[in-house]
Amino acid sequence: MPDVPDVTLEGLYGQMVLDHCRNPRNNVPLDAPDVEAEEFNPFCGDRVIYQLKLDQWGRVSGASARSEGCSIIRASASMMAELSTGRTLPELQGLSDSVRGMMQGRGIGDRPAADLGDLNALQAVRQYPVRIKCALLPWTALEVGVEMFLARQG
C-alpha cells in the first residue's frame, strides 16, 4: 500500500478562519479609493476587490476587501483588510511578501518580516497545495493595486 501522508482538517477550518469567513471585516466599499484592484480566478469563480484610502502621510486610513468564493479566500481577504489599516504601502508589500513566504514555504524576501497576526491561522493551507492560490488571490490584488498606485505617483 503506498505511503500517503494523512491530511486532517485540523487547522484549515479552525475557528479563526471560520470567524473571518462568517463575519468578514472591512467589506464595505470605499468612496473614491486611492488604491483599487480586482482579481478573478476563472477556474473557480473566486473574486476579490481591494480598496485603500491613504492619509496625508501615506498611511492607510481606510481599507476594504470584498470577496466571493470559498472560505479560504474570504478569510484571507478579511484578514488582509483588517491588517491594512495604519500601514504604509511599503509595509503592506512587506506583509504580502511574508504571507507568500508562509504559503510557499520559502524565505520572506528583502523586506522586513511583518507580524502576521490572525494570518497565522492560514498556515494550514500550506498542506493543501491546490488551495494556496485561494489564499493568495487577495494578496495578488494588494500587490497589483499598490504597484499601480506607486507607478502613477512616479
Binding site: V7, T8, L9, C44, G69, C70
Partner: peptide, 13 residues
C-alpha cells in the same frame, strides 16, 4: 453557503 472547493477539500480528508 458552502463553496464547492471547501466541499472538495473536506471530502478529500
Amino acid at each position: 453557503g458552502i463553496h464547492p472547493h471547501d466541499i472538495g477539500t473536506i471530502l478529500d480528508t
